[in-house]
């Protein structure tokens, strides 16, 4: 119950995530918005995103959303999705190197660089596009009712390294990477829950009733 703000900063398809939230909680008031007051007022916040990190950061700057996100990511149930995970990190190698929001310590790398430095052969194509199992390496209310090792839908070329103390879901594509990270009231996924059929909807339903504590 309550209101959920889906942050609209011009990066990708927000309709699907909003519809999925409405689908799992018909009492939720879901609003797609870039108005700081609306975001600050909402009970829960979703930070989605697709595309390139530089555009993402500059749009957040232009719309004066940077401080708003830093604020809500520390104060209310907060869900980052895809680029909305990567932007939380300190630094991304994408676009020649871009500083992120720094809410999670760590770095975003390209799969090919990762394969190279890990000394592994590429297991397949990049972007990684499709369904990969997620190992739940730490308990979390958002995993509630979802069997360990469920498949989720991923589409990405850059990945978040494993984060000590913050990675709660791990997937493997040649190397282990962060499929989901969490800290206090913040949860973020590399996969798209809004496109992951039953498992994804279960995670969103858990988010819609999450109080932000572990």
């Amino acid at each position: 119950m309550g209101s959920i703000a889906v942050i609209d900063y011009g990066m990708g398809n927000l309709r699907s995530v909003a519809k999925a939230l409405e689908h799992v909680d018909d009492r939720a008031r879901v609003v797609i918005t870039h108005e700081p007051e609306q975001i600050l007022r909402a009970d829960r916040v979703v930070f989605p995103g697709q595309g390139a990190i530089r555009d993402c950061m500059s749009e957040l700057q232009r719309l004066e959303l940077r401080d708003v996100i830093l604020e809500v990511a520390r104060s209310k149930p907060f869900l980052g999705v895809c680029l909305g995970l990567q932007a939380l990190l300190e630094f991304s190698d994408e676009n020649g190197g871009v500083a992120g929001l720094g809410l999670l310590p760590g770095r975003v790398r390209h799969f090919r660089d990762g394969f190279c430095s890990a000394g592994v052969a590429a297991p397949g194509k990049v972007p990684l596009m499709g369904w990969v199992p997620v190992r739940q390496v730490a308990a979390h209310p958002l995993w509630s009712g979802i069997p360990d090792g469920q498949w989720f839908y991923f589409v990405h070329s850059y990945y978040v390294e494993l984060l000590e103390g913050a990675t709660v879901g791990v997937s493997r594509y040649g190397l282990d990477f962060t499929a989901a990270a969490a800290r206090e009231n913040m949860f973020a996924t590399q996969f798209h829950p809004e496109k992951s059929q039953r498992a994804g909807l279960a995670l969103l339903a858990n988010f819609a009733r999450w109080d932000g504590t572990r």
């Binding site: 398809n13 309709r15 519809k19 839908y153 589409v155 809004e194 496109k195 992951s196 994804g200």
Partner: peptide
Amino acid sequence: VASEVFMPLTVGGGIRSTADVRRMLNAGAD
């Protein structure tokens, strides 16, 4: 479809411009 079915969706045929691409993405195509 995108309002009721939560799985990846591709749309093709007759796409001629970036405006067409945007329209399909905004409608819910992945």
